[in-house]
Design a protein around this nucleic acid. Sequence first.
DNA 1: CATGAATGAGGTTTCATTCAT
DNA 2: CATGAATGAAACCTCATTCAT
Lengths: 214, 214, 214, 214
Amino acid sequence: MGIQERKERERERRRQQIMVAAKRVFSVRGYQKATMEDIAKEAELSPGTLYLYFRNKDELFSSLFIRVLQYLNIRLEYVVNDETEMSPVQKTEALRDAMYDVYEFDPLTLINMFHLQSSDILKNLSSELLTDIKALSRNSLNLMSKIFEEGIKKGVFIDRHPVAFADIVWAIFSGVVLWEESKRIIDGEKNYLKETLGIAFEIFVRGIKTDRKQ
Amino acid sequence: MGIQERKERERERRRQQIMVAAKRVFSVRGYQKATMEDIAKEAELSPGTLYLYFRNKDELFSSLFIRVLQYLNIRLEYVVNDETEMSPVQKTEALRDAMYDVYEFDPLTLINMFHLQSSDILKNLSSELLTDIKALSRNSLNLMSKIFEEGIKKGVFIDRHPVAFADIVWAIFSGVVLWEESKRIIDGEKNYLKETLGIAFEIFVRGIKTDRKQ
Amino acid sequence: MGIQERKERERERRRQQIMVAAKRVFSVRGYQKATMEDIAKEAELSPGTLYLYFRNKDELFSSLFIRVLQYLNIRLEYVVNDETEMSPVQKTEALRDAMYDVYEFDPLTLINMFHLQSSDILKNLSSELLTDIKALSRNSLNLMSKIFEEGIKKGVFIDRHPVAFADIVWAIFSGVVLWEESKRIIDGEKNYLKETLGIAFEIFVRGIKTDRKQ
Amino acid sequence: MGIQERKERERERRRQQIMVAAKRVFSVRGYQKATMEDIAKEAELSPGTLYLYFRNKDELFSSLFIRVLQYLNIRLEYVVNDETEMSPVQKTEALRDAMYDVYEFDPLTLINMFHLQSSDILKNLSSELLTDIKALSRNSLNLMSKIFEEGIKKGVFIDRHPVAFADIVWAIFSGVVLWEESKRIIDGEKNYLKETLGIAFEIFVRGIKTDRKQ
DNA sequence: CATGAATGAGGTTTCATTCAT
DNA sequence: CATGAATGAAACCTCATTCAT
C-alpha cells in the first residue's frame, strides 16, 4: 500500500467519521436546527475541520443521501440479479424486505430525503453531487421496474408500464415511512412500519396480479 | 350579537387574514426561509401585530395545518354521508378525488405537514393546538375507515381492519404527493400527480376487492 | 412637516449617526480590521441596526466616499462659479485651498479612497452607489478642468487638454496626501501637508503658465 | 565557503523563493484576500514552511517592500552617479524613466505600499524590518534630492530645498500611479500611466526651471 | 390595538497559525 | 528541516421577538 493510498484511505475514514456524526445530529435536530458546531462536537473535531472535508453544510447534508441511495441500489441489485429462481411475487416480497432494510439502515436521513425544504438545498448543491443523486435515484427506479417488467412478461402481473409500478412502490414506501413517523411524532407511540409496509405491499401485489389465485 | 361577540369575530377575521398571508409565504419560501416580516408584509400588517394573534412563528405555521385538516374532514364527511347510494368502489373513487382536492386546496402546507423538521415545531406547540391537530387527524382516519368498513360489511372488500386500510390510503397519498414533488424538484418537470394517484388508487382498490368482477 | 417627512428626516439622522461612527472606526482601524460590531458600539447601536440602514459593510464603507466627493464638488463649484473676477492663477490657488479643505473635512476616509483594496469593494457595490461615485468623480474632474480651460482661453496657461491638467492636479493631491501620511506612519512625525501641497501647486502652476511674469 | 555560510545562502534562496511567490499572489489577490495557503501553493511549499522563514503574514508582506525599495535605490544611484554628463533636466528625465521602471518592476506591491491599511501592518513589524524600510526610504529621497541639488547649484533650477523637490517627485509619482489605477478600477479602461507621468514630470520640470528656454 | 425600529443571540464560514509526525 | 491536518477565534449577517409610542 503506497503512502498516497494510505493517505487517501485516512482521508476517507475522516469523511466517514464526520458523516456518521452529521447523520446523528441531523437526525436529532433536523437540517436547520443542526449547527455545524454541533456536528463538529459530535465528531470530536473543530468546526473548521469539517470544511476540509465538505465544502459547506448543504454538501455535508447531501452526501448522507448518497450513502442511503447507494445502499438501496446494492439491495435492489441483489434482488433483481437473483439466481435462485424466485417467482415475480417472491421478488416483490424481497423488494419489500429490501425497502424495509433501507429504512433501518438510516431511518432519519431517509426521512430527511423526503424533506421538501431540501428543494432549497438541492439548488445549492455542486452539480457533481446533484448528478450523483440523480443517477442513483434513476438507477434504483430502473432496478425496481425490472422486477415488474419480468412479472408482466411472465403474465403474472397486469400489463402496465413497469416504471409506473416502480413509482408507486416508491410512493407507498415513502408514504408509509412518513406516515408512521408522523404518527410517532404526534402520538409518541412506537411505530408499526413493518406491519403497515407488509400490508401495503400485499395489497399492492394483489392489485397487480392477473389472477387472484396464485 | 353582543359587543363581546363582535370583537371576537373581528379578531377571528384578523387571524384568518394572517393565516392566508402566511400560507402564501410559507408555500413560496418554505418554513425556514419565510420570515415573519415577509408574512407581515403579505398581510399588510406590521410584524408586531402578528404576535398579537399568534404566540410565535411555530404556532402560526402549525395553525395552517388545522385549516387543511378541517378541509379534509369536510370533504371526507361529504363522501361518507353520501345519500346517493354510491357503491363502496365508487366511494373509494370519491375518496381519491377528495384527496386530490385536498392537495389542490393547499399543496405546500400539506407537503410541509409531512415535513419531518416539523418534529421540532410540533414539540413547541401549545397543547391546545396539538390537541386540535390530533383530534382532526383521528377524525379523518375514522371517516376514511368508515368507507372501507362499509365495503367489508357488504362483502366487496376483503376482511381486514378498516383503519389499516385508511392508514394505507393516507400513506399512498402522502407518498404520491411527496414522490411527485421531489421528482418535480429534481427534474424541473411538471408533475403527474393526478395520473399517478389515479393508478395507485386503482391498484389499491383492485387489491382489496374480494372478487375481480364487480 | 408631514409625518412621512419627519420619519424620513429621522431616518436620515440615523444614517448620519452611523456614518459618523463608521468614519471614526474605519479611520482608526482600516477597512478590514474594522468590524461591524466596532462600528455599532461606536454608534451606540446594536449590530443588527446597522443593517437596517446599510445593506452590508461594503455599502456602509462606500457611502462615506459619497460624503467626501459631495463636499469636494461643492468646494469646486464655488471656485469655478466665482463672481469676484479671480484670475486663472488665483483660481488655481483657490483650488489648492479647496483640496486642502477636502482633506481636512475627512482625512482618513479620503485616504481610504486611494485604497487599492477597494478594488474588491467597488466590485461588490450596488450599481446605484457605484453610479453615484462615478458621477461625482467625473463631475469634480470636469469642474477642475474648467479652471484650466479658462486659463488656456485667456492665454495664461499653455495649450494642453484641460482634463489632463485636472488629472494631474488630482494625482498631485493624492500623492501629497499619501506621501505625507505614509511618512507620518513610518516616522510618527507630524505632517506638513499644507506646506508640501503649497509647493507642489506652485510648481505646477509655474509649469503651465505661458509666461513667467504674470 | 564554510558549511555555516552555505546553509545561510541556502536559507536566503528559500526566502527569495517565497517572496517571489508572495509577490505574485499579493499582486493578484491583494493583501487581505491572499491566504498563506495560496502563497505556499505558489511557492510549492507547505504553509508551515512559510513560518520557518517569516514570522507571520505581515512580515512576509512587508519584506516585499524592501525588494522594491532596493530596486528603486539601484535605479536612482545609476542616475545620480551618471558619467555621461547629462544635464540636470536630462537627469530629471532619467529620473522619470527610473520611476516608471520601478512601477513596472512590481506594480502591485508598489501600490500596496501606498496602501494605508498597511498602517496596521507597519505597527506589527519587527523593528529590524522597519529600520530597513526607513533607511531605504530615506536613501532614495536623498538620492533624488541630489539631482535637484546639482540643478540648483548650476542655476538651472530655482533655489528651493532639494529634499522638498524630491518629496514632490515622490508625491507626483505616487499620485499618478494611484490615480491611474483607481480610474482603471472604476472604468475598466486601460491605463495611461506613461503618458500622464510624462506630462506631470514635464510640468514639474518646467516649474522648477529658472528660465523657460533651456 | 397597532406599529416598526431596534435588538442581540446565534449561524456559517474563513484562515493565520501550530505542532505531531 | 519540512509537512499539512487540525485548530478555533472571529467576522459578517439574519431574523424572531420586544416595547416605547
